[in-house]
C-alpha cells in the first residue's frame, strides 16, 4: 500500500477518533495516548485491532506496545528503567522518540512514549517493510 505520511496520519486519526471517542482536532502528532487522549489498557488492544483492519497489516503481540519489557521487574530499579531495560525498549520501539525519556527514564513517564506520532511512525515502517518484501 503506497501511502504518504499524511494519508497514514489521516487514517490513524480516524482510528483514534473511533477507538477513543475523541475529537479529530485533539489528535495532534505529539498527543500522548494515555494522558492526552484518555486511552485505557483495553483501548490499546482496540487500537491494534483497528490498525490491522485499516492498513491490512498483522501486528504481533508486543510489537507496537512492548508491555512485556515494561512488566519485566529486572528492567526497573527504584522506579527507573535500567540501562539494559532502556536498551531493549529502544531496540523494540524504533518508532518512538526517546529523546526526553532517556534523560529521565522514570517508569511513570513511559506512557509519554506512546504518542500519535509513535503510531504513525510504526505504521509507516511496517508498510515500507511490507512493500520492500
Amino acid at each position: 500500500m503506497g501511502l504518504s505520511r499524511d494519508e497514514v496520519m489521516g487514517r490513524v486519526e480516524e482510528v483514534l477518533v473511533d477507538a477513543l471517542g475523541v475529537d479529530p482536532e485533539e489528535v495532534t502528532q505529539s498527543a500522548t495516548l494515555t494522558e492526552d487522549l484518555g486511552a485505557e489498557s483495553i483501548d490499546f488492544l482496540d487500537i491494534v485491532f483497528r490498525l490491522e483492519k485499516t492498513f491490512e497489516i498483522k501486528i504481533s503481540k508486543g510489537e507496537l506496545f512492548p508491555d512485556d519489557i515494561l512488566s519485566n521487574p529486572d528492567n526497573v530499579v527504584d522506579g527507573k528503567m535500567t540501562a539494559e531495560g532502556l536498551a531493549s525498549l529502544k531496540s523494540s520501539m524504533p518508532h518512538a522518540d526517546f529523546s526526553e525519556f532517556e534523560a529521565n527514564p522514570d517508569v511513570s513517564k513511559v506512557s509519554d512514549l506512546f504518542t500519535v506520532n509513535t503510531i504513525v511512525n510504526y505504521v509507516e515502517n511496517k508498510l515500507n517493510t511490507a512493500n520492500a518484501a
Partner: peptide
C-alpha cells in the same frame, strides 16, 4: 467476530 487474539476479541 472482527478480530481475535490471545488477549481479546472485537
Amino acid at each position: 467476530i472482527d478480530s481475535i487474539d490471545e488477549h481479546a476479541a472485537a
